[in-house]
Amino acid sequence: MQSPAKFLKHKGWHQTTIIALVGGIYVLGSWFLKFDNLNGLLAIPKAFAWLGVNFRPTANSMEYLPRIWQKLIQTVLLAISSTVVAAIISIFVALLGSKVTGINGFVQTLVRGVASFFRNIPLVAWSMILLFSFKQSDFTGFLALLLMSIGYLIRAFMEIIEDEASETMLALKATGANYFQVIFQAVLPQILPSILSWILYMIENNVRDATLVGILTGTGIGFIFDIYYKSFRFDAAGMTVLAIIIVVIGLETISNQIRKVIL
């Protein structure tokens, strides 16, 4: 047994080491990246001052509003549909791959590996290779978001099934119910609220990611922001950002209300 004094001293050392380590990484990292912390810090107020002057939507920028709005709606629809399709695919795969409802060890490992692989391929890579084959179209954006979401949702759904459904699953198995009965009567009713909660989260996230995909593939709200930005129509770009803020916060609020009711 350690003496209390020794333990506290050890703990103190432990903390000091970690702080020194993290600080060291930070300083070295800044040096490698040639990141000037002071200038960076000063850039923030400068940036906001600049934003205040140039990004402020003027009476003029109102004319852009219909077009921005149309693209934004389109982006939200794309985010929703890609999430829903991804969720439908993922729930089947997750049922096959989870430890509780899965078929066998081999399939479980395979599903885990594939999901992890999909999740970790950068969105940029998906966007670019899809752009190459599917050209500049909404379908490209849809596919990029879809493939990305599938990776996330499979893993999330498998964890939900394993956390929430294993006990009831066992109970129904013991009554002599068969596989499909157990899935539909025990597993799905139990996990549906959590699944829905994740779908809502993924939709919010996809609206944000759609901006990136849009910039790369020339679709939706990202495209229009990029155009305004590159042609120095900053008031219109500011308008676009404002519209994004409103929609994302709106979606978040609606999701939270829905979660409150269903969970």
């Binding site: 002599g176 119910a177 068969n178 499909f180 009965q181």
Partner: peptide, 16 residues
């Protein structure tokens, strides 16, 4: 009623 599932056809069980 879940206790009855073992006596039911797959379809009737699935739809409860």
């Amino acid at each position: 009623l879940h206790g009855r599932l073992g006596y039911k056809s797959t379809l009737a069980g699935v739809f409860g």
